[in-house]
């Protein structure tokens, strides 16, 4: 029991989306009543398990958790948002919308309800309105990096959803730029987190600004030593840049620097792959592939 509570706490802290793990560990806790022994954490666990149960389709478990929370905190906006989520999950979208509107009528600044409204619009199949609502929300709450991340994802999804050719060209030009803008805001709000730099670097690469992407990938590896995805990014960029004609821009990376970085990335990738427990044949194959890239 102690271990389950610890794992749930870790998942709350790292914010990873693992509803199957949460339900697997949380269901026995809730059903046996052992969750009450956690005192203050019990309500957080109830909330966590409720959301995970909704994701996994276990509506009875979710209902049970939400009832427990309602009994303890009647009328709380946070509990009502959970009820709204419950309605969203089963498909009663208008009713969910009513709940969120009611919460916002009472307290304009309730961020939870505002965010749920955004996702409700998306679930209803209105991505453009969802983006509009999110932009309006971010205009008011500038410091919410989660919101900026979500907006970046919205733009990238838009990209994937355009099927007409001309629209695609426009989309590629515009959406990547918009997503890059959002990632820049996220980086400004959380400068030490290499994962956001990685996403920004990959967006830049997709936009074909390879020089800039290379610098960002270097930053990722600088922030997190031997980050494999970052090293691969470096290799991709350096191979493109080395094949292209040397740029006349004085601020661009010089040829010798490119070669040095390329060599470094290759070496680190070989070191990372060579140090594992894989069979020797796997190691040699991967080494050959990395060196030829």
């Amino acid at each position: 029991m102690v271990n389950a509570a610890k794992v749930l706490q870790d998942l709350r802290a790292s914010a990873e989306r693992k509803p199957d793990v949460v339900v697997r560990l949380g269901k026995p806790l809730v059903e046996s009543g052992a969750v009450k022994k956690l005192d203050a954490d019990a309500w957080l666990v109830y909330e966590q398990v409720a959301i995970a149960a909704l994701e996994v389709g276990d509506d009875t478990l979710a209902h049970r958790c939400i009832e427990a929370l309602e009994a303890k905190f009647p009328g709380s906006a946070r509990v009502r948002r959970l009820q709204g989520m419950q309605l969203e999950a089963v498909g009663r979208l208008e009713d969910a919308g009513e709940i969120y509107k009611a919460i916002l009528r009472e307290d304009e600044t309730n961020v939870l309800a505002a965010k749920r409204q955004v996702m409700l619009l998306r679930t209803m199949g209105l991505p453009a309105e969802a983006i509009g609502a999110l932009v309006k929300y971010l205009d008011i709450n500038y410091t919410d990096f989660e919101g900026w991340l979500q907006l970046a994802d919205f733009y990238l999804e838009e990209l994937m959803n355009t099927f007409v050719f001309l629209d695609q060209l426009l989309a590629a030009f515009l959406r990547y730029a918009q997503a890059a803008f959002c990632m820049e805001e996220v980086i400004m709000l959380q400068p030490q987190n290499h994962v956001f730099h990685l996403k920004y670097a990959e967006i830049l690469y997709s936009q074909d600004s390879i020089g800039l992407a290379l610098k960002q990938f270097c930053r990722v590896v600088e922030l997190c030593k031997d980050h494999v995805r970052g090293l691969y990014g470096i290799k991709l960029c350096t191979s493109r840049l080395l094949k292209a004609a040397p740029s006349r821009n004085p601020a661009a990376t010089s040829q010798e620097d490119l070669k040095a970085i390329d060599l470094l990335a290759t070496e680190r990738l070989l070191a990372v792959y060579g140090s594992g427990n894989a069979a020797a044949s796997v190691k040699t194959t991967s080494a050959k592939w990395i060196e030829s890239a």
Binding site: L214, K215, Q216, C218, R219, V221, E222, K225, A251, T253, D257, A260, I261, L264, R268
Partner: peptide, 12 residues
């Protein structure tokens, strides 16, 4: 990030 490549090379 102006000289991030140099910094990376120095770091390693």
């Amino acid at each position: 990030l102006e000289n991030v490549e140099i910094r990376l090379l120095v770091k390693y």
